[in-house]
Design a binder for these strands. Structure first.
Length: 660
RNA sequence: GCCCGGAUAGCUCAGGGGCAGAGCAACGCACUCGUAAUGCGUAGGUCGUGGGUUCAAUUCCCACUCCGGGCUCCA
């Protein structure tokens, strides 16, 4: 019998009989690998485990506990769900069912406009478990388009995909599970179920099982508002029961940290419906935190060489015609207001106003870089259904800066800007960053190639000088210039896009900005847009979730609570409060009308950093009992000592950041 | 905006065509207590709004409002 040679990822080669499959390769390496295998990559292309290999192929086994492996599991689980739905809802049409982050979904159209309920979800899940128990093989076959269209005669969405795949020049950006130009492949699970799919899939449904259906949602066919509304079922699937349980636990944890829930519990802010969707009012405890954030931001900008400006919330439409916002951003703007001498809009961005400040008089190269900073409140019209707590609202305040400088200054300016941004984010407790460089979209840009090359290399240089790893998002730039986006990872591993540094040569052009150079000629500056926390409101929401409401001492609305053990100790408690108040502590006292245990519990529920208990011993000795959040109780700490520790802790937060 | 779901006391939630319920919170009284819930009591509601069906609607039906989950990208 003929032999074939297979190369493994470590470079070694092995011989197998002709017709061997990746499953055979996995089995020959070890039984554990064979068990964990869900698919393979053959010469870099994902393939089924039981596809026959060709001589000389490079084979890597994809295991269930890798990202690629989980994608295969999830995608296969989506198929099982589709099969379950067709069993339970005859006549259901199905469209696409991809793997997504942490799970999968599948979109269906049910006969007579029926919709799924939660009870249906339970029934579908039960049916899925039966299918898993049946251990049906996933059998791949490839078809001619004509035969595929016939096979899916009563599945209009599948037919549309097939037609799109087979038509030349198909739109490549479509998020369907079939790439244009590829062969039409289908997977058959049983006589009763066959699905159009690129694959790969696990060998059989018995490989699956650690899944859970999560929710039903409406979703437009191909994301198009004008297209039909389908019924989407979201599920999650993992390589083991343990990984599934961990994921479900993470969801619970995220729910507990939801800033909207904590905002109510901790009395931080609310969204009164009388005001309208996406518009918050800040209660005293939320407002003090926000004030501290803003004060800190101002302090850092003052030290960072920024000049403070203020600009109005409304502007004449002419301004946004000049800036181009009415051409490019009209959808995101509030509707216009007609007033005596013209049309006015609430500003969606601060940059046009800052350009007018630059342009208010002649500028010299000696003034550059000119860094204008504003906590500027902007209004953006977000569709009602997209509003989400503080994370997406209709009016918000940016810690916004526009830096005007020469093209030559840009690399150094961006380099120090990166330092500045990271140092401020660190002060708020973030230290895990991801960087993205977005480059020119060939379909949508202004400015010449040399400008773009120059700008992109300035950003790249800054990242390289800091030795930062970054991913490049080709074609993701705004039309006016490339940008760096910075994501932070929070305490439970979620990524939030916060900061952005955008290079802009368009706006200076539009506003005709000029400075006089050392050569006595007029030159055009370039402009850097830079938001650091981004939206103060959103950043506040991220902080609430990052800290789960337990703000670090320097940001906590109430830093210290003093609890007299009994009424007799209240006078002494007031003395302690006065001592702490004198060093600027936010401190309060709760008298002994309730039992001590209950008052401690309340303070813990409010997540206060320090509870000080004072009783007979303390009055006698001038001490306090210190009960820190998340720490051990310590009796008999002198008031002087506690005041010293407290001030050290609070000032070190700001000092650390200022010296960085 | 569109699809689905929801709305009962400040919060969390139960109930159900026939007098509106609990726990926590609030308020009062008693207790004066050393580190995560003392006891008793009081008050709190047009059951989101409007219309319909019914002898009777918080409950069933319709519309609306608001909230939540989703619907390419983006603060």
């Amino acid at each position: 019998m003929a032999q074939i040679t297979i190369t493994l990822p470590d470079g070694s080669s092995r011989e197998y009989p002709a017709g061997a499959t990746a499953a055979d390769v996995a089995a020959s390496i070890g039984s554990r690998l064979a068990k964990a295998a869900v698919a393979a990559t053959v010469d870099g292309i994902e393939a089924d485990l039981h596809a026959p290999l060709t001589d000389g192929a490079e084979v890597a086994i994809v295991t269930a506990d890798s990202d690629a492996g989980r994608d295969v599991l999830r995608h296969s689980t989506a198929h099982v769900m589709a099969q379950a739905v067709t069993r339970l809802f005859p006549g259901a049409k199905f469209s696409i069912g991809p793997a997504i982050d942490d799970g999968f979904y599948y979109d269906f159209e049910l006969p007579d406009g029926r919709t799924f309920s939660d009870d249906d979800l339970a029934a579908i899940e039960a049916e899925m478990r039966r299918i898993v128990g049946e251990d049906q093989p996933f059998v791949r076959s490839e078809l001619e388009p004509h035969d595929a269209l016939e096979l899916f005669a009563d599945q209009p969405y599948k037919r549309e995909i097939i037609e799109r795949v087979t038509s030349a020049g198909a739109d490549e950006t479509d998020a369907v599970d079939v790439a244009p130009g590829s062969a039409i492949s289908v997977y058959r699970n049983s006589d009763a179920f066959v699905d159009l799919c690129r694959g790969p899939h696990v060998p059989s449904t018995g490989k699956l099982g650690h899944f859970r259906l999560r929710k039903v949602a409406g979703a437009y066919w191909r994301g198009n508002e004008k297209g039909p509304m389908l019924q989407r079922i979201y599920g999650t699937a993992w390589e083991s029961e343990r990984a599934l349980a961990e994921y479900l636990h993470r969801l619970e944890e995220a729910e507990k940290r939801d800033h909207r829930k904590l905002a109510v519990e901790l009395d931080l802010l609310s969204f009164p419906s009388q005001i309208g969707g996406g518009l918050a009012v800040w209660h005293p405890k939320g407002a003090i935190i926000r004030k501290l954030m803003e004060d800190y931001s101002r302090l850092r900008h003052e030290h960072g060489g920024y000049e403070f400006v203020y600009t109005p919330h409304l502007a004449n439409a002419r301004l946004f015609e000049t800036s181009g916002h009415l051409d490019f951003y009209a959808d995101g703007m509030y509707p216009p207001m007609e007033m005596d001498n013209g049309t006015y809009y609430p500003k969606p961005m601060n940059c046009p106003m800052h350009c007018l400040i630059f342009d208010s008089r002649q500028r010299s190269y000696r003034e550059l870089p000119l860094r204008l900073f504003e906590l500027g409140t902007v209004y953006r019209y977000e569709r009602a259904g997209t509003l989400h707590g503080l994370m997406r609202i209709r009016g918000f305040t940016q810690d916004d800066s526009h830096i005007y400088c020469t093209r030559e200054q840009a690399p150094d300016e961006i380099t120090s800007l990166l330092d500045f941004v990271l140092s401020v984010l660190r002060a708020f407790g973030f230290d895990d960053f991801t960087f993205h460089l977005s480059t020119k979209d060939p379909a949508k840009f202004v400015g010449g190639d040399d400008l773009w090359d120059d700008a992109t290399s300035a950003l790249r240089q800054a990242l390289d000088r800091h030795g930062l790893e970054y991913t490049v998002k080709d074609g993701d730039a705004a039309f006016y210039g490339p940008k760096i986006d910075i994501d932070v990872r929070d305490a439970i591993g979620r990524a939030w896009q916060l900061s952005t540094i955008q290079y802009d040569f368009n706006l200076p052009e539009r506003f005709g900005l000029e400075y006089v150079g050392a050569d006595n000629e007029r030159h055009r500056p370039i402009m850097l847009h830079r938001a650091l926390l981004g939206s103060i409101e959103r950043f506040f929401g991220v902080l609430v979730e990052h800290y789960a409401g337990a703000f670090p001492t320097w940001l906590a609305p109430v830093q210290v609570r003093v609890l007299p053990v009994a009424t007799a100790h209240e006078a002494y408690a007031d003395e302690v409060v006065a001592r702490l108040g004198a060093v600027g502590a936010r401190v309060d006292v709760v008298p002994a009308t309730d039992q001590l245990g209950k008052r401690i519990r309340s303070a813990k529920m409010e997540k206060l950093p320090y509870v000080l208990v004072v009783g007979d011993d303390d009055v006698e000795a001038g001490t306090v009992g210190v009960n820190p959040r998340g720490g051990e109780v310590e009796r008999g700490v002198s008031v002087d000592e506690f005041v010293r520790r407290f001030t050290d802790e609070v000032t070190s937060a700001a000092d650390l950041a200022l010296s960085a």
